[in-house]
């Protein structure tokens, strides 16, 4: 027993070094798996507040850009107004059944909540933004986040008033996308190089792809609503060893200037996940 104490006293520094390393590494590797760590909620609240203070300055300089983006989005939404469209044939008349309209209400699948971006980083390999909405306002992990331009990311952690969002420009983020013209689906991820460019894989070479084509979220993505802009094709990389193109997309969102985002809740997500899980269980 005495020898053990002597051993501990002799190597106390080394042992405490090992203990602190183990603690740090457990934070690191547990975090990557579960997206949560010790005191994450408290730390989130504190860093969120400091980021918010910084953002009051930063926001002033980005107001112009934020305004432009919001006006652009408003324009796109106004284009969709029904009064803009005229029926080509006068024998056809658009009839709106008031009962039908009312009964549509409970079937709203996606709920949107607005949120202000208070902190963002684009310099690391896993980039996060902090938004000023948290669990008290109904934000939960795994909700989709979209901006005025398009896809932003996914909520990974919440505290009462702030949430952290893993952006599309993170090495571990993946989203299912499709080409707008042909509907070909592919997986989109980031290679860690340029914060404005993401990569799309598995597009067959038979599909005509041109620079400037839009890429939208597909119907298969369970957290993102379908047909949200992810980006536009910047260049087509031809890999001669496979039958697939690698596309480089310019992201629809500029992550260093985004100031307002929408958090999207899929109300049927749980039902869908349960059904898929049950199916998997019966197949096993």
């Amino acid at each position: 027993m005495r020898n053990i104490f002597l051993f501990i006293r002799r190597y106390f520094n080394f042992l405490s070094f090992l203990a602190l390393q183990a603690l740090a590494l457990s934070f690191l590797f547990r975090y990557n798996k579960f997206h949560e760590a010790a005191f994450a909620s408290v730390a989130n609240e504190v860093t969120g507040r400091i980021n918010g203070q910084y953002n009051t300055v930063e926001y002033y300089f980005k107001l112009k850009k934020a305004n432009e983006n919001l006006v652009k989005e408003n324009l796109a939404l106004r284009d969709l107004l029904r009064s803009n469209y005229q029926q080509p044939d006068s024998s056809k008349r658009l009839v709106v059944d008031s009962i039908r309209v009312d009964s549509l209400k409970p079937f709203q699948k996606y709920i949107y909540r607005d949120a202000k971006v208070v902190g963002s980083f684009v310099t690391t390999q896993t980039n996060f933004i902090t938004i000023h909405r948290g669990s008290s306002q109904g934000i939960q992990p795994d909700m989709a986040v979209i901006g005025p331009g398009g896809v932003v990311g996914r909520v990974v952690n919440t505290s009462p008033n702030f949430s952290t969002v893993m952006t599309m420009i993170s090495r571990v983020f993946k989203v299912d996308g499709k080409l707008k013209n042909t509907g070909e689906r592919g997986s989109i991820s980031w290679d860690g190089q340029n914060p404005r460019l993401v990569q799309m894989r598995n597009i067959p070479k038979s599909v005509p792809v041109q620079k400037g084509d839009s890429v939208l979220t597909s119907e298969l993505s369970s957290i993102f609503p379908p047909n949200i802009l992810i980006g536009t094709v910047d260049s087509v990389l031809n890999d001669p060893s496979t039958n697939f193109y690698n596309l480089r997309l310019k992201t629809a969102t500029n992550f260093s200037t985004v100031q307002f985002v929408y958090v999207v809740q899929n109300r049927l997500l749980e039902e869908q996940a349960n059904l898929e899980k049950a199916t998997r269980n019966t197949n096993e």
Partner: peptide
């Protein structure tokens, strides 16, 4: 350790800078 962890929480990647600082 505490100093590194403080930076980690800002960058939202707990543990990595703390380990390097220790």
């Amino acid at each position: 350790f505490i100093y590194g962890l403080a930076l980690d929480y800002f960058l939202m990647w707990p543990g990595i800078h703390a380990a390097a600082c220790v």
